[in-house]
Simulated scan of single mutants.
Amino acid sequence: MNQLPETGFLRLPQIIGNPKAEPPIPPIIPVKKSAWWAGCKSGRYPAPIKLSPRVTVWRVEDIRAFLANA
């Protein structure tokens, strides 16, 4: 959890990782994209926030709380 900022927002690749990025982004929560979205829909993972039609983010505080309870 040391790599997370104190406040702000995270995009999906920052949460589930992206091995194809340069440099590769390690996952905070190692699940596939479809499993993440299914978990968000069911309430298992934190709810997303839409900033614009093409930008979805999650609050860092919500991700920290999820990791603390996992």
Rank of each mutant, 00 (worst) to 15 (best):
A38S: 15
P46F: 00
A47Y: 04
L12Q: 04
I25S: 03
S34W: 07
L10A: 05
P5G: 00
S52D: 05
K41M: 09
V55K: 13
P19E: 10
W36I: 05
T7G: 05
F9H: 09
T7K: 12
N18S: 13
W36E: 06
P27W: 01
Q14Y: 11
V60Q: 07
V31Y: 00
Q3R: 14
I49P: 07
P19C: 10
V60Y: 08
N2C: 13
V31L: 07
A38H: 14
I28P: 01
S52T: 07
A65F: 11
P46D: 00
L12H: 03
S34R: 12
T56K: 04
N2P: 02
P26A: 10
F9C: 01
W37G: 05
R11V: 04
A35G: 02
P23A: 07
W36G: 08
S52F: 01
R11N: 06
P53S: 02
Q3C: 12
R64S: 07
I15M: 09
N18P: 06
V55L: 15
I15K: 07
E6T: 14
V60L: 09
K33Y: 12
A38V: 13
G39M: 02
S42A: 11
C40P: 02
A35F: 03
I15A: 08
P24T: 15
E22S: 15
R11I: 01
F66S: 01
G43I: 08
A21S: 09
F66D: 01
K41E: 14
N69K: 15
P46S: 02
G43Y: 05
N18W: 09
V57I: 07
K32H: 04
P5T: 08
W58H: 07
E22W: 12
A35I: 02
R11T: 04
A47W: 00
V31M: 05
F9S: 05
R64Y: 06
L4I: 10
P19Y: 11
A21W: 01
V60H: 04
R11E: 10
P48E: 11
A68I: 13
P24I: 15
R11L: 08
A70W: 13
N18I: 11
V55C: 14
I25H: 00
E61S: 12
A70P: 08
N18T: 11
P24A: 13
G8K: 01
L4E: 02
P19L: 11
L12Y: 04
G17K: 00
P53E: 04
L51Q: 12
E61F: 03
E61W: 00
W37S: 05
G8A: 05
V55S: 12
A21M: 05
P26S: 06
L67C: 12
G8Y: 00
E61C: 02
C40E: 08
F9E: 06
L67K: 11
V57E: 01
G8S: 02
K33Q: 15
I63D: 00
P23L: 03
V57L: 06
T7P: 01
L67Q: 09
A38E: 15
I49S: 11
P5W: 04
V55H: 10
I25R: 00
G17W: 02
S42V: 08
A68K: 15
P53Q: 00
T7F: 10
W58V: 01
S34P: 03
Q3L: 12
P13F: 10
D62P: 07
I28H: 02
F9D: 04
V57R: 00
A70I: 08
N18F: 13
D62S: 03
